[in-house]
Amino acid sequence: MKALILDGSPEGDSLTPVAVLGMHSALAGRGTDVELVKLRELDIAPCTGCFGCWTRTPGECVFPDESRDVLRSYIASDIVVYATPVTFGGYSSQLKKLLDRFIPVLDPRFTVVGGEVHHRLRYRRYPMTIGLGTLSAPDPDAERLFLALVARNGLNVHQSAEAAVLVGETDPLSARSLAERLLDRAGIAP
């Protein structure tokens, strides 16, 4: 089994790296081959909204930057972890910049999923989506919104998704415990 952890922490964020460490060790402990991508170290441009990835070079962004390598890894993975500080209930801009570039993995044509319209799938299989957020202090509204956002992102690939938020967690062992519970909930067997 292969897992891809997308670390969307900005410079100076002390909490998300701890959550990532906990998840990395929980996944490795289950015999998973883990690839960790620190997004702030990659050169990825924002999506220009040209739809060239659907109508010019279907399946691939027309701009050949490092997002292509990440997408290739994504499609080859069984699990993808979106690790991010919870930013107004959403993702950090680092993570969001990459996710905006994810649309070539979908087929632009429409289909109905769960009663609402989504894009068709381009590939036969997609990794299970796991959201791993961090907050410095309890914020129930932000936490609820984050869980809802990850669930909606799961729907985009016609799946359910799992997510959790670590609040003020600086201990890697506690972070690993939460990651273990999250993986159990997602049905990822040890």
Partner: peptide, 12 residues
């Protein structure tokens, strides 16, 4: 515009 259930990254 809605980008992946959220705001476009630069606006974020």
């Amino acid at each position: 515009p809605l980008y992946v259930d959220s705001l476009p990254a630069p606006l974020t």
